[in-house]
Simulated scan of single mutants.
Amino acid sequence: MREKLEPIMRKSIVTSILFFLSLQLAGCASSAASLPTYKPDDELVVLAHGLGRSDWAMWRFAQRLKDAGYKVCSLDYQSIGVSVAEVLTETSTQIDACILNAPKVHFVGHSLGGLVIRAYLQNKTHKLQKAKIGEVVLIGTPNKGSELADHLNDSWLMEIGGGISRALVTGTRSLGNNLNALDMNIGVIAGTKSFALTNANFTGPNDGLVSVASTKLDTMSDFITIEVSHSMMRYNQEVAQQTIYFLQKGMFKH
């Protein structure tokens, strides 16, 4: 009886993981990024959402940044069923428009949004010559890829996800591992609230989708962990407070 049940249980677990991730990835681009106007002392935050989301997914985070006195330009890009090149082209165009005439520019990215920001800063630093480059905060970003993406690499979900989803694996095919180090003040926030459903795919602390180890960069200026799951980072008050503190002070509040 046990031998008959084990394959069924394994299939059920895999199905549950896929369903869970489909909820995590659900969503689509909703509207073009709104472009702010600036006063001489204004500071802009370019805010980038994660895989399968839209600018609406970052609305609360954006509001907290605005309440702290920042101008916010929220990116809104398609990330399901598209290639890495398509994502980077679209986001690069949006960021170029966002930073036009901005006196000072910070960058904040959740999950895939952090990789989008790294790619832009690697390739488009010349676009920021007229603006003062501020701080960069990467939140739950799979800088070295996701072990869960490795586990699901051959699944139908990855087929639907397209090239950008496949680029979130670990190893030499990882988008994060193929981006250059940046000579900027970078703060990294990692979540430590894992999920029972996905925890077996990790060997250490994780946020349910990305391991703490994967978020780290050799060139990061500061690092902090917060007990929050991957998807809830964009709503979590402590994550927002630490991000704002880093934008203001260039470090996290330890």
Score class of each variant (00 low, 15 high):
L152V: 08
D183Y: 01
N153R: 15
K132Y: 05
G162S: 08
P142Y: 00
E147R: 05
L168S: 10
T172R: 09
G134P: 02
V137F: 03
T172M: 04
L152E: 08
S146K: 01
L128A: 06
L182P: 04
W156Y: 14
L128I: 08
N178V: 06
G162C: 09
V136I: 15
A131T: 14
T141R: 06
L157T: 12
T141V: 03
D150F: 08
N178P: 00
L179V: 05
A131H: 07
L179M: 10
G134R: 04
E147V: 00
L138T: 12
G161W: 05
T170R: 02
N180Q: 11
E159P: 00
N143V: 04
K144D: 08
G176Y: 03
E159F: 14
T170S: 08
T170N: 03
A131N: 14
L182W: 02
N180R: 03
I139Q: 09
L157S: 12
G162I: 09
D183L: 01
G140A: 03
N178K: 07
G163L: 11
R173G: 13
L175I: 06
L168M: 15
V136F: 04
N180Y: 00
I164T: 11
I160N: 02
T172K: 13
P142F: 00
V169E: 11
A181R: 02
E147M: 05
A149S: 14
T172D: 03
T141M: 07
G145C: 01
N177K: 05
L157Y: 13
E147G: 10
E159I: 13
E147L: 08
K144V: 00
S155Q: 09
M158A: 14
N153Q: 13
H151Y: 15
Q129D: 03
G161P: 14
E135K: 06
G161H: 08
E159S: 14
I160P: 00
K132T: 14
D150I: 08
I133C: 06
G140D: 04
L128E: 02
H151Q: 13
G140K: 01
S165W: 08
A181H: 05
N178L: 10
